[in-house]
Structure formats: C-alpha cells, structure tokens
Amino acid sequence: MLHTVNKSPFGHSALDECISMAADGATILLIEDGVYAAKAGASYEGKLKAAMGNVKVAALGPDLAARGITACIEGVTVVDYDGFVELVAENKMTAWV
C-alpha cells in the first residue's frame, strides 16, 4: 500500500494516524505540506525515523524545493511526479487527506 500525507505533522494528526496504520513494508509518500515531516533537525525526526524501521518514507521533491527544505532526514527517498506515478502503479493508494 502507498499512503500519501499532505498535512504538516506539526498541526495535524494525519501522519501520526497514517504511521499507526501503515503495514510493514508500506510506503508513505509525503506531499504538499506533508513534506515538513521530512525536514532534518525538526522535532518529528525521531518519530519518522522510528516509523522507518517498518515502512519506507518518500517525499515529493518539488514540494520540498517549494518550501526551501534542502536537508531531509536520512533514509527518506526523494521522488518527482514520475516517481509518484511509479509508486501508484506499484501499489494501491490511501490518501490521509
């Protein structure tokens, strides 16, 4: 399963809920304001790294760039829209809108 999260983890519970329900081996793709979760050095880093023991985490590059995020948490894969499409082709999707 591919999960997308488009809300910041600092103001919304979407990513917390997503992480609690993502199966082992699932991929969480952070898009739009969701990419703030991937910012290195922020307070969500510990939670995201813990989640990465079970799930893969990716972030949409154009959304990172648009928000001036240049340093991602180690282990987060950066994808473009083509990569987003590939993830959808490989998996069913749940959007945590």
């Binding site: 488009n6 898009i31 829209y81 083509d82 499409v85 959808v88």
Partner: peptide, 18 residues
C-alpha cells in the same frame, strides 16, 4: 494545493502511458 498536485500527477501519469 490539491488541484495543482492532482494536475501535475495526471500530466506525469499520461506521460508514462497511463
């Protein structure tokens, strides 16, 4: 941003033959 992301996704998907 949802409309923008959807549009960018669709363009990429069409480009990849979906």
């Amino acid at each position: 941003q949802a409309s923008d992301t959807a549009y960018n996704f669709i363009k990429a998907a069409l480009g990849k033959g979906h």
